Computed example of a mutant assay.
Amino acid sequence: MTGTTMVVLIVLISVGFGVLYDMYKKHLEFKSKTMEQNSKTTEQNIALKKQVANLEERVQVLEKIVTDQGYQVQQEINNL
């Protein structure tokens, strides 16, 4: 091997490892951002589930009120 060939190989190997290292760093940053976004999404899902549960309870209460006999009698009186 000549000196020029060795210099070219050394440069190519150095540049190659530099590129691979940068790619690895970008991958770790992306993974970190993805995990952060997933945790935010999980928190939002929990909050939405609580809100849906509260709304379901309210609908059940309203259904009880509407199906109550006293409410129906009051509506009939109001209609007269």
Rank of each mutant, 00 (worst) to 15 (best):
T42L: 10
F30V: 03
G18T: 07
L80Q: 11
K33H: 07
Y24E: 10
T4Q: 10
E57N: 13
T4S: 08
T42V: 08
N45P: 03
V59F: 02
Q60F: 08
K26N: 08
V61S: 03
F30R: 10
N78Y: 15
L62I: 05
K49D: 15
M35L: 12
I46C: 02
I10K: 06
L12C: 06
V52D: 08
Q51A: 15
K64Q: 12
I46R: 05
G70I: 12
L80T: 11
Q51T: 13
L9M: 10
E57P: 03
D22R: 13
T5I: 09
K33G: 05
E36R: 02
Q74K: 14
K33Q: 13
L48W: 05
N78Q: 15
N79Q: 11
T34M: 08
N45W: 06
L62Q: 07
V19P: 00
V19L: 12
Q72C: 06
Y21Q: 02
A47D: 09
K31I: 15
T2C: 08
E63C: 06
G70S: 12
V7E: 08
N45D: 13
Q44L: 06
T41R: 07
Y24W: 12
G18F: 05
E43H: 11
E56S: 13
N78H: 14
I46F: 06
Y21K: 01
Q69F: 13
I46V: 08
L80S: 12
N45M: 12
I46P: 00
K64F: 05
T67Q: 09
